[in-house]
Simulated scan of single mutants.
Amino acid sequence: MTARVVALTPNPAWDVTYGVDRLVPGESLRVRTVVGRAGGKGVNVARVARVLGAPSVAVCPLGGPLAAPFAADLDADGQPAAVVPVAGAVRQSVAVVPAQAGPEDRGHPTVLNEPGPALDDAEWAALVAACVAQVRPPAGVGVPDVGPEAPPGAAASAVVATVSGSLPPGTTRERVLGLVGALHGAGARVHVDVSGPGLLWAADAGADLLKPNRSELAEATGADDLVDGVAELFRRGARAVVVTDGERGLTAYAPGADTARPVVVGRARLAEPVAGNPTGAGDAAMAALAVDPDQPWARRLALAAATSAAAVLQPVAGAVDRADVDRLHTHVHTEPET
């Protein structure tokens, strides 16, 4: 049965995507296309989850001149949202996507991320409360309907709260521990996709799933060996870890009897990589992992690999075509637990 996804973006961004012929550093470039929309990794998760048939709500703090267009864009897209007003201005994130690969970029987009505003204690508390309210709404408060692609009669059987993207400047370990603890206390499973110290703090908090990519894992743990890095997250208290590794796909780990040797419980990758814009591919995988957490790992990872690849085919982050997901799903190679 489908889970309901409460997708927190602690540091949302107004996403601007520039399409250029070729990215040449130091030169003036003509922008061929431009798209601006409400974004941030959690917003992307919420949007993709709906395409996959899961009801979702995006939770985010918003302030400044871009707050109104941000909220209006979510509304126009039909994306349920819980907005927490804050004093600081929402940041911008600019992705420059070349149509032709150059020697410096190899066709990959260049992304410029502004830092975003710090949240004071009252604003952070309000953000946590908004998440808890969506996980466990008070009596008489409705929750979002099942997404547009859900089969007739589909119902939510669980709540998965996702925490995705950068953390606001000044975020502390205590804040992350409190957030994960509050979500657990409300009855949600908590999936976290953050980088830097926040990844370690989420492990300390006992997050149900952590989803770093290979470089984020190495940066946060200081371990050159992937398995050693995963083991460190389990030592701290993580309950499951999925590592994404670009074209190599995804690998899921569970803690082993020996804390230094985590157990591989599944792998999935696309038989042939797809070309396009990889911005948002990790968010699409995060959404796929959340929509049905009770499925076997092989099925969850296969859907994540297909959804991630489908996101690469889209010009902007936070979008997938369900037809692409279904088509690519047939080309996913999976390996069972070892």
Results as ranks from 00 to 15, higher is better:
V194I: 08
G206Y: 08
V192R: 02
A207L: 06
L199D: 08
A218P: 00
K211A: 04
P197T: 11
E216W: 03
A205F: 05
D204F: 01
S215L: 12
D193E: 12
N213E: 11
S215M: 02
S195K: 11
L217A: 11
H191T: 11
R214N: 02
A202Q: 03
D204M: 04
P212Y: 03
S195G: 14
W201M: 12
H191F: 15
D193G: 09
G196A: 15
A207Q: 04
A207P: 08
A203Y: 05
L209A: 09
L200T: 10
E216K: 08
V192Y: 01
G198T: 11
L217F: 04
V192K: 02
P212H: 06
W201C: 14
V194C: 14
A205H: 08
P197L: 11
L217Q: 09
L209T: 09
S215A: 13
K211C: 02
N213P: 05
L199Q: 12
A207T: 05
V192C: 14
L200P: 05
V194P: 09
A202I: 01
G196F: 00
G206S: 05
R214V: 15
P212F: 02
L217H: 07
P197Y: 00
K211W: 00
G198I: 08
A220S: 15
E216V: 06
L200I: 06
D208H: 12
G196N: 13
A220D: 10
D193R: 05
S195A: 15
L209H: 02
P212S: 11
K211G: 08
W201T: 12
L199A: 10
G206V: 08
A203N: 13
N213C: 04
E219I: 00
G206F: 05
G206L: 07
L200Q: 15
A203F: 03
L217K: 07
V192A: 05
L217M: 11
R214W: 07
H191N: 10
L217P: 12
L209K: 06
D208Q: 04
G206M: 04
P197H: 13
V192D: 01
N213W: 06
L210C: 02
W201G: 13
V192Q: 02
A220R: 11
S195M: 00
L217S: 12
D204K: 04
D193M: 00
H191M: 11
